[in-house]
Simulated assay, not measured.
Amino acid sequence: MTIWTNENIVEEYRQWVESTAGSLALQSKMRLIVDLISGWPRRGRRFLEVGCATGLMTEMFYHAGFDVTGLDCSPLMLTEAQELLGRRAEFFLGRAEHLPFDDNQFDYVGVGSVLEFVDDPEAVLAEALRVASCGVVVTVYSKWSLYYLLRNRSPSGCVEHRRWLSPFAIDKMLRELVDMGEMTRRSILLGPVSTWKETPVCGWINSRIMPYGLGALSGICIDKNDTKMPIPLKIKKSRAKPAILNACRTNLAARNPTSTFDK
């Protein structure tokens, strides 16, 4: 994770999330996570985002109703996150492999696109599971995807720093760490990065929730104690997800007027 301490890389990250492809990737990541955690209780629940970067996903978790905390190894990233969220979140400087928190200090933990950039991804997962009393949600860019196969065409320099992992490898790590509970697996962003744009066909293909491993971004939700709320599926789809995504969309559109996501 040391690459994120470089000021040029931080600027590159900012440019990527503001680009057409990066904006769609971020919105797709939000859609995938909201789908995975739709059954989690939120009000009064403590949520830690590991690898919070500039706080864009942290803001989504805040709008979802969690009491949010962010952690990152880059002081530059944390400065931007603090400017974005102000007093709505707490932020800590630290490493994902050695979280500065007590066992079960948080209800839920999110590990978003961190495993690809660390030397010991299993240690990151173990730490997330240690500090989460109820559940963990993980996202990782997949080695089985078209994004990986055509990665040399990606406009993001972050791609060359990634340590690509297969969904099978992530599953193997989690099987060794999780003794009980329920796991939900899905993915998003089916097309290569050249299709990450808001044309009718490309937008539809890349916004669909796919089976685990098929899309560029895979997600796993681990419910340690099977703590999901008994919410009917229709309510989850028609109310919970759009409410969170629309709030985030509004804030992203204000910062990036050129975004056309879901229009």
Rank of each mutant, 00 (worst) to 15 (best):
D262T: 09
L78V: 10
L189D: 03
V10S: 00
L36R: 00
S259W: 10
V17P: 00
I170R: 01
V137L: 10
L56R: 07
K263V: 13
I3L: 13
E116H: 02
S156E: 00
G203F: 06
I33A: 06
G135W: 08
W4H: 11
K172Q: 09
L36S: 01
A254H: 11
F106W: 09
A123M: 12
D103W: 06
G39Q: 05
V178P: 03
I205F: 13
I222E: 01
F168E: 14
V114P: 04
Q15D: 12
P257R: 05
L56I: 06
S74V: 02
L84W: 02
D107R: 01
R163M: 08
L48W: 08
E198Q: 13
E182T: 12
G51P: 05
I188S: 02
P232H: 03
G135D: 09
F66H: 04
A96D: 05
L214M: 13
S187F: 00
C221L: 13
E80R: 15
E116G: 02
R186Y: 05
H98N: 13
V124A: 05
A216G: 15
E49A: 06
E160H: 13
A243N: 14
R239V: 14
L125R: 01
E198P: 06
L217N: 01
I209S: 03
P100A: 00
N225Q: 15
T20L: 10
F61L: 09
P242G: 00
E59D: 14
G181Y: 02
W196H: 10
S142Q: 04
G191C: 09
A126N: 10
Q82P: 07
I170W: 01
H63F: 14
K228C: 10
S113Y: 09
T199L: 07
L115G: 03
P121Y: 02
D179E: 15
V131G: 00
S133T: 01
R45H: 13
M229D: 03
E80F: 07
R249G: 15
K197Q: 12
G215P: 07
M183S: 10
S28G: 04
M57S: 11
D67R: 06
E97F: 00
T260Y: 07
R162T: 12
L32N: 03
L78K: 10
D171Y: 04
N251D: 14
C73M: 13
D119V: 11
P242H: 04
K224L: 12
E80G: 03
S194E: 12
V140P: 01
A132R: 02
L189T: 02
R130E: 03
N104G: 07
N206D: 04
N152L: 11
A21T: 11
P230L: 03
L174W: 01
V178L: 09
E198H: 09
R185D: 06
V50T: 14
R87S: 14
T2C: 05
V114K: 04
F101R: 08
R255K: 12
I9H: 12
N246Q: 14
D67A: 12
I33W: 07
D107A: 01
W144V: 08
R95S: 13
T58P: 03
M57I: 12
K234A: 11
W40F: 14
T139L: 11
R151K: 15
Y147L: 12
T58M: 08
K228E: 14
L76N: 04
N246A: 12
I3C: 06
Y62W: 11
D223I: 06
Y108N: 09
F261W: 15
I33R: 05
A128Y: 03
